[in-house]
Nucleic acid binder design. Sequence first.
DNA 1: GATAGTAGAGAGTGCCGCTATCCATATAGG
DNA 2: CCTATATGGATAGCGGCACTCTCTACTATC
Lengths: 196, 196
Amino acid sequence: MPTIKYYLREGLLPAGVLTSPNQAHYDDGHLRRLRLVRALVDVGGLSIAAVREVLTAVDTNEESMHHKLGAVQEAISQPATGELDPIAVKDVQAFFDRHGEFEFFGVDESNVTGMLVSALSAARSVGHDHFPELLDSYMEAMRIVARADLEYIARRTSSDDIIEAMVIGTLIGDAVLKAVRRVAHAEVSREAMDTD
Amino acid sequence: MPTIKYYLREGLLPAGVLTSPNQAHYDDGHLRRLRLVRALVDVGGLSIAAVREVLTAVDTNEESMHHKLGAVQEAISQPATGELDPIAVKDVQAFFDRHGEFEFFGVDESNVTGMLVSALSAARSVGHDHFPELLDSYMEAMRIVARADLEYIARRTSSDDIIEAMVIGTLIGDAVLKAVRRVAHAEVSREAMDTD
DNA sequence: GATAGTAGAGAGTGCCGCTATCCATATAGG
DNA sequence: CCTATATGGATAGCGGCACTCTCTACTATC
């Protein structure tokens, strides 16, 4: 309960309707919003500041749907950390070129690019220069995921629901994928042992 | 530099060889280890305590390779957070049953299961009851990823290299997959718009 | 012999996500 | 009507974590 007051103060939850100077009323929307915040924090690992960014992007009504989706995407993608290896930048550029995405994810422009570059930079710094060779397999796999995600999101009708489904589908999906990947590792390595 | 001293104190880096009571010598191995720690912290988002767990698991020589891999896997998979929905537990059990993994990932036994259950619980709490329907597509995609990962790891020869490749391949791979998934979302949704 | 530099250890710092306290009001029970 | 309890709002405090600062003892070098 003190946490809710804190979230209210931080602007993560809209204030309740004051029925009297010391009584505020909260409806299902508030509860839903609270659960969303908890999901973003617990499962998505977002900071309070990041959650606020996401929510303001979600709540903005002025922009076009396209613009809004982009803003939300950026908000749920943490920017680059650590130092960026120029060769990693090249690797990412080459990857985008190969998949015709270069015009959409120009280096230095989006957090997605930053995530990719910093991850590959870190790989290089620990001697894993060949990591980028995995990118195409990853892309192939992620296309399957993305198609499932899109189909899932497309069930929603209202644009608010679409935005929200994208946010939680992306963040919870990230967590789920992590876990499923570990399951798949176990399965595949067991298969490999059998055929040895 | 003070950070390095801190890591030494925390036992994340082995002490250098003392050439004299106030001069310690650090070799390439130390630098490599330092970079590994930075990668785990920056890209993997692990806490210092988690990094220590991973490193002790990596450095243990007494256990079998199999045991070691398992310990490392657990160390790099954060345990469940938030409250667990019993229906989510059922969903996860059903998923494991479907893929014949139930004997390997018993509920309550591994962090991987915990990750999955808490993610699905969070999804349910925000009204996304149908999220588990995505699991099979995710598993299909992750098999592709896992095969690529295994092939990547199999290039290593020494068992130390294998362990290390697994650690950084898993953690950096998670970050890379996140980013690539966002790229795939963009590609797939653009395709969908074209065919509309 | 003065200076500079390092190892090692303890205390201190800043941020972040809460949590506890305080006060004014207000509704509920008697 | 009056007290007890509870709530909203605001301010201050707390605990954990990842560092960072400082202090001491010593030694290698000029």
